[in-house]
C-alpha cells in the first residue's frame, strides 16, 4: 500500500533522513519507533507535505502509495483523493469550532452522504465522550479528548490509511491505553495504520510490525512480538 524507498530529506539545514526505506501493507498497523530527533516525524511529514516550515525538503528517494508517487501531490489532494489522513503532532484541532464542526469540516471533500452519516456513528461509538461534548467548543476539551477528536477527525476524512504523529504525547498512561485500543479497533475495522511513537512499550503492544529509527536511518525492523524480545530493544527502548 505505502512504500518509501531510499528517502533522503532535510529539515532546514539539518540532514534528517539518510536513506529510509519502509513499507506498510493494507490492513496492517505499523509503528515507527525511535528517540527524539531520530527522524520519525520527518518521515511522516514527507508523506504529507504541509507548507514550509512544516515540510521537510526531499533530496532523493520515492514515496509510492498504491503505485502513485506522492512526492509532488499537495496535502489536500493526498487526503481527498488518496484517502490518507494525518493526526498531527500536538493534535491541532480547531479550538474555535465545536466538536461536531471539527468532525464535519473533515468531510469537506466527500460527497458520499450516506457513508458520512455512518462514519459519524462509528466515531461516536468509538469515542462516546465526543458525543457527549458534541456542541462544546473544541478548546474546552481535555488533552485526551482532543486526541480522540483528532483521531475521529482523521477518520471522518474518509481515510483508509491513517498516519499518527506521537499520539500518546502528554497523556496519562490509562488514556494512552484507551487511545491505542481505539486505534486497534479502527484497524480491525479495516483502516491501515502507521503510527510514529516514542513510547515503544505501548506501540509494540498493539502494532503488528515496527521499525526502529536512529539518526535518520532504519536500524531494526520486525514483528512486534519479536522486537519485544530483542535484548537491544529491551535495553534501549523498553527500559528493561
Amino acid at each position: 500500500m505505502l512504500e518509501i524507498k531510499n528517502l533522503y530529506a532535510n529539515y532546514g539545514a539539518i540532514e534528517a533522513l539518510h536513506g529510509v526505506s519502509l513499507y506498510v501493507d493494507q490492513g496492517e498497523m505499523v509503528a515507527l519507533l525511535g528517540a527524539n530527533g531520530a527522524g520519525k516525524s520527518t518521515t511522516l511529514m514527507s508523506i504529507m507535505r504541509l507548507p514550509p516550515p512544516e515540510a521537510p525538503l526531499i533530496k532523493q528517494g520515492s514515496i509510492f502509495f498504491n503505485q502513485v508517487n506522492l512526492l509532488n501531490v499537495p496535502p489536500h489532494v493526498v487526503v481527498a483523493e488518496h484517502g490518507i489522513a494525518l493526526v498531527p503532532e500536538g493534535r491541532r484541532i480547531f479550538g474555535n469550532l465545536t466538536v461536531f464542526e471539527n468532525l464535519t469540516i473533515a468531510t469537506y471533500a466527500r460527497k458520499d452522504k450516506n457513508q458520512i452519516a455512518l462514519d459519524y456513528d462509528a466515531v461516536f461509538d468509538l469515542f462516546p465522550r465526543l458525543n457527549d461534548r458534541k456542541k462544546q467548543r473544541a478548546d474546552t476539551l481535555s488533552g485526551g479528548e482532543q486526541q480522540m477528536l483528532a483521531m475521529g477527525r482523521a477518520f471522518m476524512c474518509g481515510a483508509s490509511f491513517i498516519l499518527l504523529d506521537e499520539p500518546s504525547m502528554g497523556l496519562a498512561p490509562f488514556l494512552m491505553q484507551e487511545l491505542f485500543k481505539a486505534l486497534k479497533q479502527l484497524n480491525e475495522n479495516g483502516v491501515t495504520i502507521f503510527v510514529v511513537e516514542q513510547n515503544a512499550n505501548i506501540a509494540l503492544k498493539y502494532a503488528h510490525r515496527a521499525y526502529v529509527m536512529e539518526t535518520g536511518r532504519i536500524v531494526l525492523e520486525g514483528k512486534s512480538h519479536e522486537l519485544v524480545n530483542n535484548p537491544e530493544i529491551r535495553k534501549a527502548y523498553l527500559g528493561a
Partner: peptide
C-alpha cells in the same frame, strides 16, 4: 467552517482535504 478553521490554524486545514 473552513473559513473559521483557517483563522485558527491555517496549517491544519489542508489535512482535512481542503
Amino acid at each position: 467552517m473552513a473559513m473559521r478553521a483557517i483563522s485558527y490554524d491555517r496549517v491544519a486545514v489542508p489535512l482535512m482535504g481542503i
